[in-house]
Amino acid sequence: MSAGVRPGVRPVMRPAADCRFDVVSLGEVMLRLDPGENRIRSARNFSVWEGGGEYNAARGLSRTFGLRTAVATSLVDNEIGRLTENLILAGGVDASLIVWRDFDGVGREARNALNFTERGFGLRGAMGVSDRGHSAASLLQPEEIDWDHLFGTLGVRWLHTGGIFAGLSESTAQTAIAAMTAARKYGTVVSVDLNYRPSLWRGEAARARAREVFTSLAEHADVLVGGTTDFVDRLGVESGQLDGVLARFPNLWLVASTRRTVHSANVNDWSVVAQARTERALTSTQYDRLEIMDRVGGGDGFVAGLVYGLLEGHDLASAVEYGAAHGALAMTTPGDNSMATRAEVEALVGGNGSHVQR
Rank of each mutant, 00 (worst) to 15 (best):
G4R: 12
R63H: 03
D222K: 10
A210E: 06
L168C: 04
A179D: 08
V156M: 02
N112G: 09
V129G: 01
R68V: 05
V345E: 00
E37I: 13
D104S: 04
V12Q: 09
S62F: 01
G244C: 07
N38M: 11
N112V: 14
Q174P: 03
G122C: 02
A330F: 01
A265R: 04
H326R: 05
F116V: 11
G299Q: 02
E204C: 10
D315N: 15
F103N: 15
S74M: 12
A126Y: 02
A3M: 09
R234K: 12
H314N: 13
A206H: 04
L252C: 08
G244D: 11
A265C: 09
F231N: 11
S284K: 07
G327Y: 01
V303P: 02
A208G: 12
L154C: 12
T188S: 15
D77G: 06
P35F: 02
R209L: 13
D146V: 13
L311V: 05
A281Y: 00
W100R: 09
S169N: 09
A256R: 04
G51M: 05
A126G: 14
E54I: 02
S354E: 13
E143L: 09
A221K: 14
E312W: 03
T283L: 07
G152M: 09
G226N: 10
D300W: 01
L310P: 11
S257R: 14
S338M: 01
H220K: 15
R277E: 03
V232N: 01
A210F: 10
L97S: 09
G162E: 06
R211E: 14
F21R: 06
R124T: 04
G244A: 07
L290T: 05
W270M: 04
G120S: 04
A274K: 06
C19D: 10
G152I: 10
W270L: 03
S284L: 07
V232Y: 03
G105M: 11
D269G: 01
G155S: 12
T332Y: 00
V93W: 01
W270H: 04
G92W: 06
L61K: 11
A179L: 02
G107C: 05
G105K: 06
G327E: 00
T229Q: 03
A208S: 13
G313K: 11
L242T: 13
A182Y: 09
V29K: 11
L123Y: 03
A176V: 04
F46D: 13
E279N: 12
F103P: 14
L26K: 10
G297I: 05
S257W: 02
A247C: 00
V303Y: 00
H326F: 03
G52R: 03
E37V: 15
A178H: 07
Y287V: 00
K185V: 03
R41Q: 10
A176D: 04
R32L: 13
